[in-house]
Amino acid sequence: MAAGQDNLTAVLYGINDMRLEQRPISEPNDIQVLIQMEVVGICGSDVHYMTHGKIGPFVVEQPMVIGHEAAGTIVKCGKNVKHLQPGDRVAIEPGCPCRMCNFCKIGKYNLCPGMMFCATPPYDGNLCRFYLHDADFCFKLPDNLNLEEGAIMEPLSVGVHACKKAGVKIGDVVLILGAGPIGLVTLLAAKAMGASKICITDILDIKLEMAKKLGADHAIKIEKHLSEDEIVKKVVTLLGEEPNASFDCTGVESCVRIALRSTAKAGKVVLVGLGKFEMNLPLTSALIKEVDIRGVFRYNNDYPTAIEMVRSGRINVKPLITHHYRLEETLQAFETAKTQKGNPVKILIHANPNWRPS
């Protein structure tokens, strides 16, 4: 690319220290593509890195480009890239594994110890004008998906992966704890996979209202005066039976406990939210019921499923998109995410300077 071409980039230097700066544009290697970035969503993890400087063992120790929920347009391909060409619009799966370790070979590449994941220290993300990525983790968008929907394929893939872990099928009864973005995409995926009844919980009415609009059959507001026993009873009463699949999308200990206590015998509890390293949980009662406890970490081989669900009309992700900003307005976008002003669900940042609001 021409020297001096605009590659405005959002770089996190430390806690609450986000800067916009120009970065050089690199050439793709044999298996990479150069992408004109179009849309990048703000994830809760991005906000956490900005406000705390770390997530668990991942610590921001040097300047890091932020952003990993993304879609863009191919502008140049490496010589070995055959399935993409300049002009293709793609959803970008943000992790590139080693492809050589045992986890990669058995199809669990999300557990690869050599995973290079966007905006996870020490690796840069993709909130910039131009970005290099391995071509085999770029997925061409169907004609009936726009680039904004393409960026939502990242969080949707988390929900798809969680529902695959639970084996959600037609007729299943589902409990989802937490109606944030990940709880909502889990709701959408469960509905698309055939769940017949879904109950969702949250502490905020406005989030529960959104969940109902997206298809939740029942919603429970978790209030301080409600005991754990009362919440469990409420779940079972509303659903008419114990759920056979429960998803904790909060990482909060009390929610994990409710999931374990509510779930039916031989059911599955999927832990999606990241919380404390150690929790006090009712494991004996789960053991007696033979409840299967499953963890999820990101996703693997789920982007094609997520894209097909939206292409076919089984899922509509557009209601999740609540805010739009330009790349030059990144600081304002993150302030909205931090303060939750205007009840944001999914905030999108448009990296292409030619973007115009529709």
Score class of each variant (00 low, 15 high):
residue 42 I to V: 08
residue 162 A to N: 01
residue 220 I to G: 09
residue 225 H to G: 05
residue 265 K to M: 14
residue 317 V to R: 09
residue 257 R to N: 12
residue 277 F to M: 15
residue 163 C to R: 03
residue 264 A to S: 13
residue 3 A to Y: 12
residue 226 L to I: 11
residue 193 M to D: 00
residue 25 I to P: 07
residue 272 V to Y: 00
residue 147 L to N: 13
residue 180 G to A: 01
residue 154 E to I: 00
residue 64 M to V: 02
residue 356 R to K: 15
residue 340 Q to D: 11
residue 268 K to T: 15
residue 285 S to Q: 15
residue 307 I to H: 05
residue 6 D to G: 09
residue 318 K to R: 15
residue 214 L to A: 04
residue 162 A to S: 04
residue 52 H to L: 11
residue 90 V to T: 02
residue 324 H to E: 12
residue 178 G to A: 10
residue 106 I to M: 08
residue 171 G to W: 05
residue 215 G to D: 03
residue 69 E to M: 11
residue 96 C to Q: 14
residue 150 G to F: 09
residue 321 I to P: 08
residue 217 D to P: 07
residue 66 I to Q: 04
residue 49 Y to F: 15
residue 306 A to P: 00
residue 169 K to M: 06
residue 139 F to V: 09
residue 157 S to G: 10
residue 224 K to S: 14
residue 152 I to D: 00
residue 251 G to A: 06
residue 84 L to H: 13
residue 266 A to I: 08
residue 118 C to H: 13
residue 53 G to Y: 04
residue 117 F to V: 02
residue 3 A to S: 13
residue 214 L to M: 03
residue 134 D to G: 00
residue 86 P to V: 10
residue 13 Y to I: 09
residue 192 A to R: 04
residue 41 G to W: 04
residue 302 D to V: 00
residue 147 L to T: 13
residue 198 I to D: 00
residue 335 E to K: 08
residue 261 R to A: 14
residue 254 S to A: 14
residue 100 M to P: 05
residue 158 V to C: 13
residue 122 P to W: 02
residue 140 K to T: 11
residue 74 I to V: 15
residue 175 L to K: 07
residue 142 P to Y: 13
residue 238 L to H: 03
residue 312 S to I: 02
residue 249 C to I: 06
residue 307 I to T: 05
residue 346 K to N: 07
residue 340 Q to M: 14
residue 4 G to N: 13
residue 100 M to C: 12
residue 351 A to D: 09
residue 251 G to F: 03
residue 282 P to G: 12
residue 232 V to F: 12
residue 232 V to H: 10
residue 28 P to M: 11
residue 31 I to P: 01
residue 4 G to H: 06
residue 70 A to H: 00
residue 49 Y to G: 05
residue 195 A to R: 05
residue 328 E to M: 05
residue 216 A to F: 03
residue 344 P to V: 10
residue 253 E to A: 11
residue 290 E to F: 05
residue 222 I to D: 06
residue 355 W to Q: 04
residue 347 I to R: 03
residue 125 G to M: 11
residue 49 Y to Q: 08
residue 28 P to Q: 11
residue 168 V to S: 00
residue 191 K to D: 03
residue 90 V to W: 12
residue 283 L to Q: 11
residue 230 E to I: 06
residue 284 T to C: 03
residue 193 M to N: 02
residue 157 S to D: 01
residue 322 T to P: 13
residue 199 C to F: 09
residue 96 C to P: 05
residue 198 I to G: 00
residue 110 N to K: 00
residue 327 L to H: 02
residue 200 I to C: 08
residue 249 C to W: 07
residue 61 E to T: 13
residue 193 M to H: 02
residue 133 H to Q: 06
residue 25 I to H: 12
residue 212 K to G: 05
residue 260 L to I: 10
residue 121 P to F: 06
residue 181 P to K: 00
residue 179 A to H: 12
residue 171 G to D: 09
residue 253 E to N: 10
residue 114 G to H: 03
